[in-house]
């Protein structure tokens, strides 16, 4: 495909415009959350949440048709939230190594999800599309959901911003200072679940993790202060995701996978240039 045509396609076809807007909204949200996930060392937790959406999705598709995306979204979100609340409870200030718990949680919830889908919803939706993302599945409602998510995330993170930082920097110190650390722990899981469920069609349960991690790694490697970290993370997230979406259209590749690989290539490129310049 001609590179110019691949670009103008976004303004000619409704489904591509929806994908572009959804991609920008989800990227802003991922850019905000990503440094927190990386700094809190919650990468594996993100994997658990994203994989557990699979169970929610299978139950949702067993109950309603995929032609009703808003209802599918609501049921998936509700079931995932119930599962994730259990995970949040099990991992809050626990002595047990949480990585084992998380591992058990996400593999078992995904396994049950596959069985439920196989038994009750085989004809109602292509699971592969939800695993790796498929922009053809995007509807206007998905775009609106992504917009609502992005708009609600901004005050949720930036109004109590110093409290978020304190909880990450020194959880015990934050507790002693009277910050409700438990509330922030649960809120983090809630936000993560909303974000992952609303990005299911765009990036898929497996690949959303990349969008949640790479912007944070990039910004924490390059930012010299907190403000820079978040500006870099959001900018990187938007630029690399939109570029990935464009390349997916140009070369007719799956959107989620192309976005993930584009982010990885840009990150590696930056790290390589930094190394050449003698940075860490």
């Amino acid at each position: 495909m001609n590179p110019w045509t691949a670009l103008t396609d976004f303004f000619q076809y409704d489904f591509l415009l929806r994908a572009l807007l959804g991609c920008i909204f989800v990227s802003v949200a991922c850019g905000i959350v990503s440094p927190l996930i990386v700094a809190k060392r919650y990468a594996f937790m993100g994997t658990a949440v994203s994989h557990s959406t699979f169970l929610g999705l299978s139950i949702a598709l067993s109950m309603v048709s995929s032609e009703n995306p808003f209802l599918v979204f609501l049921i998936t979100l509700g079931i995932t939230l119930i599962l994730v609340t259990g995970l949040a409870k099990a991992t809050f200030r626990q002595k047990l190594p949480s990585d084992s718990l998380i591992g058990i949680f996400f593999t078992s919830s995904m396994g049950i999800g596959v069985i439920i889908h196989f038994l009750f919803a085989r004809q109602r939706g292509d699971l592969l599309g939800y695993l790796f993302g498929n922009i053809l599945l995007l509807e206007n409602q998905d775009m609106i959901l992504s917009l609502v998510l992005m708009l609600s995330l901004i005050p949720l993170f930036f109004i109590p911003f110093k409290k978020w930082l304190y909880v990450i920097y020194d959880e015990e110190g934050a507790l002693v200072s009277g910050i409700n650390v438990k509330f922030f722990h649960y809120l983090f899981f809630l936000v993560l679940t909303f974000l992952i469920v609303s990005a299911l069609k765009l990036a898929g349960t497996v690949l959303i993790e990349t969008l949640l991690l790479i912007p944070g790694v990039f910004s924490l490697k390059n930012g010299r202060n907190i403000k820079q970290v978040f500006i870099f993370s959001i900018s990187f997230s938007i630029f690399s995701s939109v570029l990935g979406l464009y390349l997916a259209n140009l070369w007719d590749l799956p959107s989620g996978a192309t976005m993930a690989v584009t982010q990885l290539i840009i990150l590696l490129g930056f790290l390589f240039v930094k190394k050449l310049k003698g940075g860490n």
Partner: peptide, 25 residues
């Protein structure tokens, strides 16, 4: 409360001034 330095998460590039601003009181 002054914790042990080993317990702190220093992944974020916190300046001294940022650190002090973390304190709600």
């Amino acid at each position: 409360y002054v914790p042990q330095t080993a317990n702190l998460n220093t992944v974020f590039p916190l300046r001294i001034i940022d650190m002090i601003h973390l304190q709600p009181e």
